[in-house]
Design a protein around this nucleic acid. Sequence first.
DNA 1: CAGTGAGCGAGCTTCCGCTTGACTT
Length: 674
Amino acid sequence: MGKSLVIVESPAKARTIAGYLGDDYVLGSSVGHIRDLPSRASDVPAAQRKRFGALGVDINEGFEPYYVVSPEKKKTISELKKHLAKADELLLATDEDREGEAIAWHLVEVLKPKVPVRRMVFHEITKDAISKALDETRAIDDRLVDAQETRRILDRLYGYEVSPVLWKKVTRGLSAGRVQSVATRLVVQRERERMAFRSAEYWDLLATFDPGAFEARLVALDGARIAQGKDFEPTTGELRESGVVRLDEARARTLSESLDDATFAVRSVEERPYRRKPAAPFRTATLQQEASRKLRFSAQTTMRVAQRLYESGYITYMRTDSTTLSESALAAARTQVAELFGEDFVPAKPRVYGRAVANAQEAHEAIRPAGDAFRTPKQLERELNRDELALYDLVWKRTLASQMEDARGQTVSLRIGATSANGEDLEFGASGTVITFRGFLAAYEPGKDEPTDDDEERVLPQLKVGQEVTLEALEPDGHSTVPPARYTEPTLVRALEERGIGRPSTYAAILSTIVDRGYVFKRGTALVPTFVAFSVVNLLERHFEQLVDFDFTARMEHDLDRIAAGEQARNEWLERFYFGNDGDPGLHHLVTENLDAIDARAVNSIAIPGSEAVVRVGRYGPYLEHDERRASLPADLAPDELTPGRVEELAQGALDRADSMFRTDVAPWCPEIF
DNA sequence: CAGTGAGCGAGCTTCCGCTTGACTT
């Protein structure tokens, strides 16, 4: 008698909470969303099909959605109904964010409870937080539900209206969406930069001095700074700044030889304190980044392993945008740091990390070891497999480090001067860091995408101004500038997260989507765009510019907040997006009347910098068009590898093999395009 | 009667975000 049904989203969470609540409570889980818009018209009953059409939204009647319960969810719902029949109260404990609020609302709509319904929310799974949540229940926030529904409908309209444009103008089966199209655009833009990149060569001198056999580089010649990589314009390879000296190989060799009899003396010693703070505890995006750098896990692997750790009670929830630790977690971390490293490593006050991300909803804690006392990885060696243990180790170390003291030390910068045989003044520079107190570094060193010399710990000898040093070795050293690196899984996720695009639950899925659609392929860890991606991005940039603007989602989020606050009407907002107003044509117009304005041949033509040839994307894939001739392109060719030289080679290859050579004035590949 | 081919019409592709199995490889 008198039992309450508590519904959460995750079955694992239900199990945990059941332990904190007494026998008066029955736990159920929705296993995520329980209803959604139909994915195709045939999922809508025939009688409703005319009204809701293929969109599942009645665009003429207040953008009313038609929701369907998918077959896989029928069982979940019947189980919840069974529990509800025996309960005399329903507590909706879905996550406290936009999606969680909507799930709660859908549950009420579908379960049609006859007993009182209350909404309860908590952001951490501790006994205190849950009992407090029981005392502070509220009603469902209908405005927040409105905001979620608006988001859902916007994504449906965008995805289901723009994708067919791509089928008509590029190739069947393609897709566009608020998230995937921006992700694809980022990857394409980076490749365009690489294609436009012109390398520059520059030289300097690398000296080794005694005492200490330390290395120093030539930094100035007659008072002018020696050019480094960052001084060159990426698209021209030209020097950006005029007061800078660029050395070529000959000059570097001459300079080197002119120092044979020179004396070298310390000109300056600059000592600065070094201090470095630990990074915040993990959220989904940073966990994916570090697991990629340190464990070489894909985003998908990281999430799969984290899911297992979460379900077995080793870590807290892994899909989160929050870096907050609960009070009990802070205490656990501080206690363990004191035990393992000593009191010196515990800061006077717990460290607090602010909101790290745009559009964070912070419905959960940071990702950390579960429980009120953290188990060490060593204690778990027998129960976890290799991948699980490695990921747990990462989470555990990062959590402890986040509650440890700063690393402290000294940075020393040296300048060493000499005069060449030709009377030129040369200055060499070296810097080193000595860490005197390791602080958080004792537990955890953040990974890097590309290791650099600067942040290596390097010890320089104690030297005084005026002191002479001996030249042990002197080598001219050549460098060339490199194009911006391609995105990898974690760097693309970071770029999206920075712009508030996508959610923790979707980061890994976004990567699969753009790969599955044939927009991106992986070469090692690098994400390489296909020529089809270039076509799609061309089309979207030229004809749906505002939709692929990098700030589109941020603006949407801002508007959804206004809807949630009751400052903006849902229908007005959707009306404007879809049907437009003053000057803005709206999406509907762009995908219907304006369709003829999209020149398929133009968007499917990709110019090759420095070459007369163009790549065209046809129904059967990309090919090269050059001098009225066509040549097919190898499927694994990266766009930036299509240099003018490679174009010649491919064109020649096509000529040599008459069977694969074809003329441009016959056999149209695609009626729309040619 | 069997095989071929032209012509026509119908159906399909697609979004984001929440959560796990159930499934195959």
